[in-house]
Design a binder for these strands. Structure first.
Lengths: 342, 342
DNA sequence: CTATATTGCGCAACCGATTGTACAAAAATG
DNA sequence: CATTTTTGTACAATCGGTTGCGCAATATAG
């Protein structure tokens, strides 16, 4: 029936020219006369021609697909990053292939292997929480495919990175709590194999120090910063002789966990305990009281990552120099940390 | 340097066989002896051979990529569906290419066009809110590419669909409110060009009728069911001579909007006004009081969609019969609608 | 022991576009 | 007007597997 889609050969035949001319006409090659271009294009339209990306990819080696590897998509941070990537990529004629590792190293490996098979033109990734060995990322670079890591990065030579200044975000958040009059500020920190959590903890410590507050080991809770961890962390803190009067959590989920416990115990937020989270998830605005948080400029981060990819792809011959981009986070002050008394 | 990756020709040369034998050996063709298969596979491993999907796709016409088109990814409903799709697809050797229309018809069109260029093997989609003309979906089917619509579907012959029983979900939710003793139940309904909202409204009306409650036009609010719409809707309802004592919202976002207004007015939930949303977003558990909602079996929905795709692909020669799958939603009862007094 | 069936692999066309090179015609230059 | 440039298109190789068909070698049947 409906013959399989029309090819440049069909167009060539109809116009009595060669396929190469058709190909060049369609891609606006300077050596093709505008007459021919017009003719080709109009016939192409008529015959409902559609460029066969596969064939082009085979010959040219470019699929125009960017592989995006995320820990998970249902975090507003990550989905916003994707949005940023898509905005930039689509305009430049690239498709985006999104995958999620669910924070498992094993999945990450099989996904990267699949991406290499699919011949993506570049990979934009954020490392899974559980990943400790990074050799699969090296595989990408070995194939001369640009790799851009964002947010959860690691030290891989030749990979570009886009991050926010986690240190600064944490510093601001902590200092904000201090300005609100809080004296005993606890911190929920994350797994230390990821730089982001190390940096946040450092920002927390520095802010305390620079404001003359002594760091207390008891007030530092290490965990996976999930909601459940926030709950258990908060419970532990409340058992202290002197419980904290504020918490700076390295994730919104753990902050919510703390909030739940505080509410169950009928404690007042922010009066008894003030809260600040990190990531500025969409629900930060929905909870009661609204949760203060550190916005990670997610959409911008995605845009940057995509732009860097495009840069590195443009001059692929010259071995690209990996770049490091650091964005400035934004502290979103909401009711959970704003004491009216001040 | 590192020669561009090894091909089956390289393997063939090393083993003094032909590329065709290598190709067949790698894909476990029955006509190849197990000796040869062993040899080929081991050499392939040694030489770090990686299957070139592009080349294979060109010849075989199959890219092993499933295109997934979503209105947006940062809704837990959609991201869960994606998870379900991925689970099934990856096991079957398919990659998933996710895109988002941001609820715009225009984006939807350009994405579908891009997908067709990329030659996806199938499309799993949920229609954008603003889409009124569906010809671009027809284009997919014209190319003999399987199309599976989920949740937000429309009447397209030859497209398979996977939906939940929105009618039933709404019916259950409304009846639940009635059982809680609510007499004046309002409904936030969505844009009527999408069946899901029509069905939910129908379920609401039927539940009222079957329980001897007269439907009141004043208690039906039409909107885009976003958070802001929930706020304005609630405000309008509170101006009535007899405001409602319960609201069944067709989306969690609009339910949260209503919740915000109620809290600002110091009204009690669920005692003054009980609330039930729809979609069971992750934040339904975080808000205070926790929001009752209708769970849409999202992960399952994705799994079904992917399975249907695989079915239709398996016997691609026989023109596939479009299938209709209807899943049963699950009412999640939480504090926002559970009156202790009962 | 001959005849048929099965097994194992090679040959070569093919998928559809891209691109370096060649070459004739037209235009510009001296 | 002869010569050099520029312009416009054709030729043909190529990207890397896939697959129908053919043929020899081995196995099974009669």
């Amino acid at each position: 029936m409906s013959k399989s889609s029309t090819t440049i050969y069909d167009i060539a035949a109809k116009l009595k020219v060669t396929p190469s001319t058709v190909s060049r006409a369609l891609s606006d090659h300077p050596r093709i006369s505008s007459k021919t271009k017009q003719a080709v294009k109009s016939i192409a339209q008529q015959m409902n021609y559609q460029h066969n990306g596969i064939a082009a990819a085979l010959r040219s080696g470019q699929t125009h697909i960017i592989g995006v590897l995320l820990p998970m998509v249902n975090r507003s941070f990550f989905s916003s990053v994707v949005k940023g990537i898509e905005q930039v990529a689509r305009v430049a004629g690239y498709n985006v292939m999104i995958t999620q590792s669910n924070d498992k190293e094993e999945n990450e490996r099989s996904i990267i292997s699949a991406m290499l098979k699919t011949q993506v033109d570049g990979v934009i990734a954020s490392i899974a929480r559980e990943t400790t060995n990074f050799s699969h990322y090296q595989n990408i670079l070995d194939k001369k495919i640009p790799l851009i890591l964002f947010d959860r990065v690691t030290e891989i030579t030749d990979a570009s990175t886009v991050v926010i200044d986690d240190y600064l975000g944490a510093y601001k958040a902590t200092e904000h709590l201090i300005h609100q009059g809080c004296k005993r500020i606890a911190h929920f920190s994350g797994t230390q194999n990821l730089n982001i959590y190390k940096d946040r903890e450092r920002g927390y410590r520095e802010a305390l120090k620079n404001n003359g507050i002594v760091f207390e080991e008891d007030l530092l809770i290490q965990s996976n910063v999930k909601l459940e961890d926030g709950r258990t962390g908060m419970e532990r803190l409340l058992l202290l002789d002197q419980p904290p009067d504020a918490i700076f959590a390295a994730s919104d989920y753990s902050a919510i966990g703390a909030m739940q416990i505080l509410k169950e115990r009928k404690m007042k937020i922010p009066d008894d305990v003030a809260l600040v989270g990190f990531a500025d998830e969409a629900f930060a605005n929905f909870v009661d009281p609204e949760l203060s948080s550190v916005n990670q400029m997610s959409e911008q981060m995605g845009q940057f990552a995509a732009k860097i990819f495009l840069e590195q792809t443009k001059d692929r011959e010259l071995s690209f120099i990996p770049s490091r981009t650091v964005l400035t986070p934004k502290l979103m002050i909401r009711k959970s940390s704003l004491k009216k008394s001040i």
